[in-house]
Design a protein around this nucleic acid. Structure first.
Length: 152
DNA sequence: GCCAACGTTGGC
DNA sequence: GCCAACGTTGGC
């Protein structure tokens, strides 16, 4: 099983929103590398760190899991959506997404500040300067470290 | 709200 | 195919 981290702005969609809905399509990803991780890397049941960006504080808020295989993001065809992509067609969709399911909300957000100073987490794309990936893989060791920090 | 860093677009 | 201009991300 692989592990992942996915970023969301809590003003738009937070861990609480996912907890309420139980399951949601992770729409709006418009970055090829992030799309490829969802399309080619994710398997049903993979666990996801739910990261709050542009938040107070920014950090990891809980856990979700992959609940579907990748399929075309419907918002790319929707003219009224802010994620509409005029270059995408039903025959040749560009953007893919997966459904995610709520697993757990941490008692407290594990702040980015804490992640940054943890030597075992220094290789994460999350803390690399200039990386803006919104979907990224997490190694098994990093996963264990993050859960230990989040629950301590 | 600022702005650095990055990805994408489009003229040539 | 280059690269300047532009738009976006996301921490602060």
């Amino acid at each position: 099983m692989n592990h992942w981290l996915m970023k969301s702005e809590p003003d738009v969609f937070s861990i609480d929103d996912l907890a309420r809905k139980k399951r949601s399509a992770w729409d709006g990803v418009r970055n090829y590398q992030a799309r490829n991780f969802m399309r080619d890397g994710m398997k049903i049941g993979d666990l996801i760190l739910f990261y709050h960006s542009n938040a107070e504080p920014s950090g990891i808020a809980g856990i979700a899991k992959v609940a579907s295989a990748a399929y075309p993001d419907p918002t790319q065809f929707d003219k009224k959506s802010e994620y509409f992509d005029p270059k995408a067609t039903k025959e040749k969709p560009i953007w893919q997404l997966v459904d995610v399911e709520f697993v757990e909300k941490f008692k407290a957000v594990l702040p980015l500040e804490r992640i940054k100073v943890e030597p075992e987490l220094s290789e994460m794309p999350l803390v690399q300067k200039g990386t803006r990936l919104s979907v990224m893989p997490v190694s098994h060791a990093e996963w264990q470290t993050i859960l230990r920090l989040a629950k301590s």
